[in-house]
């Protein structure tokens, strides 16, 4: 008997959320099919790849990353360089220097960095914080104000600071806001409910339900992403129909496979190769599970993942 193809049809769809402005603006989401299932229905907006830049410099980064940015002395110069990376759809600036337990850079300095980065590239901009909830809320507020009209994405509002982030970035400055939970599907939904109850439109929300590096409890990440997508499409759950973004680099470059030096682990081979492998494996896995965008650091990872997306969609 001949094979009969039965497309899995949903009447619901993921919201299409635009970030950036002008020619380089980009759209996340919009599809009404399971991840990468372009054989079931059209995927008008293929998954996007962003390049992460950290404002504390390149110390400790893998050789391939350092070489790529050779000669760059500021995050703005790095952003201009990153924009030339093959397959880069957006820039993600991580304001690590703001961490009160680290360099504790002032909000004003961080805003100046964000402005300089924004001026150095016409790619859409994602602003990531330093993982200190209180400081991040201030950063997102002031960066949203300084970059008004640029349609940036702030990553992200969490359970602890969503009120401030939604009120400032989402409502006062009309930027896109991320909602972040740490692989907790009920909290992922709850945060979307809370920010939309505050008046932020669902069309202005992108969710980061969390990730892990491949091999580090990753099954739980996959089932969370899939359950979100099935609820959004199969149960028409409007509180979960936001596109998903996954900051991959900040997870994968923190595990031993990517960090251990070649001197310490000669039998593991090139650190660049290991780091890229971890980044690519994790990125591809979250894309297959339901993410609409990944944030990566190594130029080789960006090129590899964007090529894969291009050939699949």
């Amino acid at each position: 008997m001949p094979f009969k193809k039965t497309p899995q049809k949903f009447s619901a769809a993921i919201k299409a959320v635009e970030i950036g402005t002008g020619d380089k603006k980009t759209v996340l989401g919009g599809e009404g099919v399971m991840p990468l299932y372009s054989f079931d229905g059209p995927i008008e907006n293929a998954p996007k790849v962003g390049v992460e830049i950290v404002d504390t410099g390149l110390e400790g980064e893998a050789k391939g990353i350092q070489e790529f940015y050779a000669g760059c002395t500021t995050p703005a110069e790095m952003a201009a360089k990153a924009a030339t990376m093959e397959g880069a759809d957006f820039i993600a600036l991580r304001l690590e220097s703001a961490d009160p337990n680290g360099a504790n850079a002032s909000v004003e300095d961080c805003v100046a960095t964000a402005k300089a980065v924004s001026e150095a590239t016409d790619l859409p901009l994602v602003i990531m914080g330093c993982k200190n909830n209180e400081k991040d809320a201030q950063l997102f507020d002031k960066c949203s104000e300084a970059l008004a009209g640029k349609n940036i994405l702030v990553l992200a509002a969490k359970e602890e600071n969503y009120k401030g982030v939604a009120a400032a970035a989402g409502l006062a400055y009309n930027q896109k806001i991320g909602t972040e939970s740490a692989v907790d599907i009920n909290l992922a939904k709850q945060l979307n409910v809370l920010v939309t109850q505050m008046g932020v439109k669902g069309e202005n929300v992108i969710m980061n339900p969390g990730t892990a590096a491949a091999g580090y409890g990753f099954e739980y990440v996959v089932s969370t992403l899939e359950r979100i997508r099935l609820a959004a499409l199969g149960q028409d759950d409007t509180t979960l129909q936001m596109p998903v973004i996954t900051p991959v680099a900040s997870e994968t470059w923190g595990v031993k496979e990517s960090m251990a030096s070649e001197e310490d682990m000669p039998e593991w081979g090139s650190r660049d190769d290991r780091g890229v492998d971890m980044e690519v494996a994790t990125a591809v896995a979250v894309l297959a599970a339901g993410s609409n965008a990944v944030i990566l650091r190594h130029p080789q990872s960006v090129a590899t993942v964007s090529k894969l997306v291009k050939e699949l969609i």
Partner: peptide
């Protein structure tokens, strides 16, 4: 399991 739980589920 017809809807995904969230703390605000009664308000939805």
């Amino acid at each position: 399991n017809n809807t995904l739980y969230a703390d605000s589920y009664l308000e939805l």
